[in-house]
């Protein structure tokens, strides 16, 4: 039932967006359709009921040896990258901390309709590398794609739930603005021109996600009190999930360890 309620909100919101988006609609024409829809009501977190969630992602196996990326296919990339490039699909520190893991609330927020932030999330193509390589974005939030390189890239999010697209971006071209309208974990992004370039985008209908830092830590703030399923995704290690309960004004800890050989 809850999911239907949430979907209902989504439809209502899309309908309003479509109405607003039609700037050329004639004015003062008597409406023959249904009565005007009220503005969507977004869920506002009450700070008095919110807590936070922190933890670290660890890997217990052998630290992978650095794998060099060969960019010689495009000599301009070799030059643009400034130094050696290493495979980033599993970055583990000396104490086993995992960077670039995507942590997010997978369940427990159904029925709450969160407004997309006005500020965009940016992915830059720099040194023939996507920066950042793992990122989260809310549904309908603007993804801004920039190219800081002296070469042409072709960004290609291979979305399966959202619309798949690819777009060429030459040196000095204006940023691209795109949106993902449906939640999707994770969208693999590649560059159609440079085979080694890839990134991952997690799209969620809420703002409760983070990407682990070099020390493996993550933090999710301002989370309404409640019971949630928290999940972590890592490019090579797969996914893990656990149940957690968040209480007001407290920090809940959630740690994950991926076992390795």
């Amino acid at each position: 039932m809850k999911i239907f309620h949430w979907l209902n909100h989504c439809c209502l919101f899309s309908a309003v967006v479509m109405t607003l988006g039609c700037s050329n609609a004639p004015k003062n024409v008597p409406s023959t359709g249904p009565a005007p829809q009220p503005a969507p009501s977004f869920y506002k977190v009450d700070p008095a009921t919110a807590g936070s969630l922190t933890g670290t992602i660890k890997f217990s196996g052998k630290k992978p040896s650095p794998k060099l990326i060969d960019m010689r296919e495009d000599p301009a990339c070799v030059e643009a990258h400034h130094g050696k490039a290493y495979d980033q699909s599993l970055v583990v520190s000396s104490n086993g901390s995992v960077a670039n893991a995507f942590v997010y609330i997978k369940a427990g927020l159904e029925g709450k309709n969160f407004e997309a932030p006005k500020s965009p999330v940016t992915i830059d193509q720099s040194g023939c590398w996507f920066r950042p390589g793992v990122l989260g974005i809310q549904t309908n939030q603007t993804l801004q794609v920039t190219n800081s390189d002296p070469v042409t890239h072709n960004i290609h999010p291979m979305a399966e739930v959202n619309r798949e697209w690819n777009h060429s971006q030459g040196p000095g071209d204006a940023p691209l603005s795109r949106h993902f309208i449906k939640p999707e974990i994770m969208i693999r992004v590649k560059c159609n021109i440079h085979s080694w370039m890839h990134a991952f985008i997690g799209v969620l209908p809420h703002p409760y996600f983070d990407v682990s830092r070099d020390d493996g830590s993550f933090e999710i703030k301002n989370l309404p009190a409640g019971t949630y399923s928290i999940a972590v995704w890592q490019e090579n290690l797969g996914t893990q999930e656990q149940q957690i309960t968040v209480t007001p004004h407290t920090n809940t800890s959630a740690n994950f360890t991926f076992k390795g050989k």
């Binding site: 070469v151 042409t152 890239h153 072709n154 290609h156 798949e164 697209w165 690819n166 777009h167 060429s168 030459g170 040196p171 071209d173 560059c191 159609n192 021109i193």
Partner: peptide, 19 residues
């Protein structure tokens, strides 16, 4: 006139244009 050089043109096509 969006593509400035022949390299950009070749790269544009290699990348599959714009969907």
């Amino acid at each position: 006139g969006a593509l400035k050089t022949l390299k950009q043109v070749v790269d544009f096509y290699a990348g599959g244009g714009n969907s």
